[in-house]
Design a protein around this nucleic acid. Structure first.
Length: 940
RNA sequence: GGGCUAAUAGCUCAGUUGGUUAGAGCACUGUGUUGAUAACGCAGGGGUCGUAAGUUCGAGUCUUACUUGGCCCA
């Protein structure tokens, strides 16, 4: 023998792991290919058809449509990743889970963008017809939907990409008209005055978001004395920075518990808040001697009920009321109330039945009737309220009749229109509302509000909505309980028109179902622009054929509402025309289990105010029931310190950057490891941690694949009775862990499920089972019973892990699945693999305890330099364990070369010889230098 | 200012109805291996549970206040 056994390379005789599943994932470059592949293979369609064919129960995750404007941000990635995980989980659980993407298209943000483009081109929206403006909005939305769809699909989202919904689709718009019509027919829609922020230049109401503030706006501030009725020479003093609203004065507000002083100046006496008396006096009577300092004091409630003469209209009086909003940090503590010109004024006016109608028209000019009763010399009709000369004229008149105590220029913050930069005014306008309290929902016999609250809180025998997290119940409950009626009208172009026709004779909206059905069909056919036939004198088209004649009416007998619907009405009714109508037609959402329209609505927690809220109200109003069984919410993405992302902090990151650097599966693993119920933290370190986790999972899968046949190769099933204890143990653990993970998934606690799987992979597979079984897998004969049992176990482990990780990391798991079962396979067409039901071998925990104790001893021995690998170790274990476990099992689990029973636990360096093939130590080797087992495999 | 909510090791999370020395994974440190190798094994060091009071024989776990965050309103 010239060659020593040690020099022979036996590695070629081993069955080392081999797989085409690479260690490095290259997710950023490879994931897009998977996206295309899934689309080409129609995985979604195939899966849904497969479940339907099996008569699977339906589970509907209904999507809150993203707004078709701008690129997706990390919040979208979180939201859509999460929803995709839910959908995949349900499919894997055996449900048919139709998931349809969609977009919210109408509304202000897009209309703004178009206006900005017009302004940039030196035009305004008046240069376009409503139809042309809408066409531009439509094109703009379409363009962003394409961008977002690509970003969305890149996430690997399993959905009906062939047929998304868009709120601007005609069928959808017709559905919206239908819902509006139902509300009108149910008597739930009414019209009333409301205080609005109004832009005189654009002649439109503005949303709060359309306002910007000028810090140093200059107004004329005036102190005005209002003489009390029946108390000559006693005056209330008001202070205002908008003298143009004085003609609309109807009342004065005082604070009931505030102290007021009565100041005497010459023969006149003035009521002002005690706090502000000195300031008032020094401002208005610079040259007058102060006659007395010990002013009589009154509390506000003593002033309430007094009446005073209007400073401009001789024949008009006003009354003092208590006002909560009255403050004494400026002015006089007595507040001029013009209900037409301010939110608080309006509320006070409404509470006390004051005149609410606005004496200022849409272009900010006084109505003609304002002039009646004014003192001679003051003309206001047709003049702009923001005209400085108008202010001067009013002041001059007040001066003449002695009401004006003081006027001066006053610099303060004032709202301007976002577009024109011109000042805005408060104005009451007619708006449409959904009545939450007065109208009755036929199905419940209660108001919309109380019906909704019953559902939110599971009261009155209702099957309540399941809120997750639970506090969603409190949150939306408080909102629904406290909100005012829903104002659904907007003075805009880009939206679904409020197709209400008001009968001029009665002032009531037309409720004839035939008319509404006609309108719905009209919009379905021609889109929302059909309503604009009113602009071209074709109003007759809005009525069914012959309807006008049959009712003895002409188009002129009606007024046609020009407003559009609040965009929240669009998304708030998708349950109806996207899901319910489709289900009723036996289409993709089809369900027959009697459950609500959708199983779950999942969105950010801000949607308690938004989509959950609007959807609940419309659904309750129209059906008496909620549109969803469960509402699940996630928190917002915040930075590593828990602070929100903002441009000023510069802590933002785009999904694109993360996709390019890490890939979607790692992003999804980051989300999948976070408790999304509260804020989800993001920082580069978080992504690195996710990448580390990912590598561990991937390597475990890779090692398993390396020990299994590739491309669909069969493995032999091993009966439980034939399984070694170690396999029985690990398969029992597999079954337990998979069930546990799935229970977490069912509760939408994905991060707990992921953690369960991860811990199993790290602590029980990598650390224990894989490590222990390497010897068997690598060195045994291919057909040794131990090896076959191990391969069988690995197959079960693989199937279980791959399917249970599939909702979290769909790219990686499908890649692994196809590596194992061939390119024709797809993990996403599978159901969860539960693993065989194997009973736990008894006492295994003691064995693992022994292993831990042994490891500590071995580590001590290793520290002395006596041994390196565990295979160099010989173990003595306490006799007491004999009979419970075989010596071989103990040797195996402790991963040492030899084990013998002795008095106590002891580890020593093995004194025998190392087999050059399996590296285990034996007391004696065969003539070839190999151990008996290896000799048999190599030469036998 | 109001509603809802959170705060446990460097990170992500567990901690049942209050009950012995607060757990896990990752990260970190040391070390072994080099037949999962841009991998894997073994061991170890890190929290007194945001702060302060209170209830209780006993509190991370109940109460109150405060601090610092988040979402939604005003």
């Amino acid at each position: 023998m010239t060659t020593s056994p040690q020099q022979v390379d036996y590695s070629k005789s081993l069955k080392l792991p081999r797989t085409g599943f690479p260690m490095r994932a290259n997710l950023p470059s490879r994931e897009p290919g998977w996206v295309q592949r899934w689309l080409t293979e129609q995985v979604y369609e195939t899966l849904l058809a497969k479940r339907r064919a099996a008569d699977a129960p339906t589970y509907i995750v209904h999507l809150g449509p993203p707004y078709a404007n701008g690129n997706f941000h990390l919040g979208h990635t979180l939201a859509y990743g999460l929803k995709d995980t839910i959908v995949r989980h349900k499919f894997l659980s055996g449900f048919a889970s139709p998931y349809v993407p969609g977009w919210d298209c109408h509304g202000l943000p897009i209309e703004w963008k178009i206006e900005q483009e017009l302004i940039a081109a030196g035009k305004t929206k008046r240069d376009l017809s409503v139809t042309e403006l809408r066409d531009r909005c439509r094109a703009y939305a379409r363009q962003w939907m394409e961008v977002q769809q690509a970003e969305w699909q890149r996430m690997g989202v399993l959905a009906d990409w062939a047929r998304p919904y868009r709120t601007m689709d005609r069928a959808n718009e017709a559905g919206i008209v239908h819902c509006l019509g139902q509300l009108v027919q149910r008597g739930m829609v009414y019209n009333k005055l409301r205080s609005t922020l109004w832009a005189p230049v654009e002649e439109t109401a503005l949303a709060e978001a359309e306002i910007e503030y000028q810090e140093d706006y200059k107004s004329t501030a005036v102190y005005v004395a209002l003489e009390l009725v029946d108390r000559p020479n006693e005056y209330l003093v008001i202070w205002t920075t908008t003298p143009w609203t004085l003609p609309a004065n109807r009342a004065v507000a005082a604070k009931a518990d505030e102290e007021y002083a009565l100041i005497t100046v010459k023969e006149r006496k003035f009521y002002v808040a005690n706090h502000l008396a000195e300031k008032f006096y020094s401002t208005c009577f610079v040259e007058e001697p102060l006659l007395r300092l010990d002013f009589p004091k009154f509390i506000g409630s003593q002033l309430v009920g007094l009446t005073y003469h209007h400073p401009l209209y001789a024949d008009r009086t006003g009354t003092v009321y208590h006002g909560d909003h009255v403050t004494t940090d400026s002015g006089t503590g007595l507040v001029h109330i013009a209900p037409a010109h301010g939110a608080e004024d309006f509320a006070l006016g409404q509470a006390h039945g004051l005149e609410l109608a606005c004496p200022v028209n849409g272009s900010g000019r006084y109505e003609a009737y304002v002039e009646e009763g004014l003192p001679a010399g003051l003309t206001l009709a047709g003049r702009s309220v923001l005209d400085k000369q108008v202010i001067r004229d009013i002041c001059a008149t007040l001066e003449r009749n002695g009401s004006l105590l003081h006027s001066s220029s006053y610099t303060h913050k004032y709202p301007l229109s976002w577009r024109s930069k011109a000042p805005v005014i408060f104005r009451t306008t007619h708006q449409w509302f959904i009545d939450l309290d007065e109208a009755t929902v036929p199905e419940t016999g209660k108001s919309i509000r109380s019906s909704a609250l019953d559902l939110i809180h599971a009261r009155s025998g209702n099957r309540g909505v399941h809120w997750q997290p639970e506090n969603g119940e409190n949150r939306i409950g408080a909102m629904i309980a406290g909100r005012p009626d829903w104002c659904i009208s907007r003075q805009r172009a880009w939206g679904v028109p409020i197709t209400i026709m008001v009968d001029k004779a009665t002032g009531e909206p037309l409720t004839d179902p035939a008319v509404w059905a006609h309108l719905e069909a009209l919009v379905a056919r021609k889109g929302i622009d059909a309503w604009d036939t009113r602009l071209s004198g074709k109003e007759a088209e809005l009525f069914p054929q012959g309807w006008l004649q049959a009712h003895g009416k002409t188009p002129n007998d009606f007024t046609y509402v020009r407003d559009i619907l609040d965009v929240w009405f669009d998304s708030g009714t998708t349950w109806h025309h996207v899901v319910k109508a489709d289900s009723a037609a036996g289409q993709r959402f089809h369900r027959t289990d009697g459950k609500r329209v959708a199983d779950v609505y999942e969105e950010g927690s801000d949607q308690h105010r938004g989509w959950f809220h609007s959807s609940l109200l419309t659904s309750v109003a129209l059906t008496g029931d909620a549109p969803y069984e469960s509402v699940v919410t996630h928190g917002f993405v915040v930075d590593g310190q828990g602070r929100k992302f903002s441009k000023s902090l510069g802590n933002g990151v785009t999904p694109g950057e993360l996709l390019d650097k890490y890939g979607m599966d790692i992003i999804r693993l980051w989300v999948g490891s976070s408790d999304y119920a509260e804020e989800v933290r993001y920082s580069p370190a978080h992504m690195e941690a996710a990448a580390d986790q990912y590598r561990a999972i991937r390597n475990a899968l890779r090692w398993v694949l390396g020990n299994l046949p590739e491309g669909g190769g069969e493995i032999t099933t091993v009966a439980e009775s034939a399984l070694p204890e170690l396999e029985r143990y690990i398969l029992h653990r597999l079954g337990t862990v998979l069930a546990e993970a799935r229970a977490h998934y069912d509760a939408f606690a994905f991060h707990q499920g992921v953690r369960t799987l991860q811990t199993f992979i790290n602590t029980e597979l990598s650390n224990l089972y894989f490590d222990v079984r390497k010897d068997t897998l690598y060195c045994d004969r291919a057909d040794s019973p131990a090896r076959m049992a191990c391969v069988y176990a690995l197959e079960q482990i693989f199937r279980g892990l791959a399917t249970h990780l599939a909702p979290i990391i769909p790219f990686t798991t499908d890649e692994a699945w196809r590596s194992r079962y061939g390119e024709g396979a797809c993990v996403h067409l599978e159901e969860y693999a539960k693993g065989p039901n194997v009973a736990e071998p008894s006492g295994f925990e003691d064995l693992l305890g022994l292993r831990n104790a042994a490891n500590i001893k071995i580590e001590e021995l290793r520290a002395t330099g006596a041994v390196g690998a565990n295979t160099e170790v010989s173990l003595t274990y306490p006799k007491e364990l004999e009979g419970f476990f075989s010596t071989e099992l103990i040797r195996l689990v402790c991963n040492v070369s030899a084990a013998t029973a002795g008095t106590e636990l002891k580890v020593t360096k093995h004194s025998g010889h190392k087999c050059p093939r399996c590296w285990r130590y034996y007391n004696t080797l065969e003539a070839s230098g190999l151990c008996t087992r290896c000799e048999d495999v190599v030469n036998g």
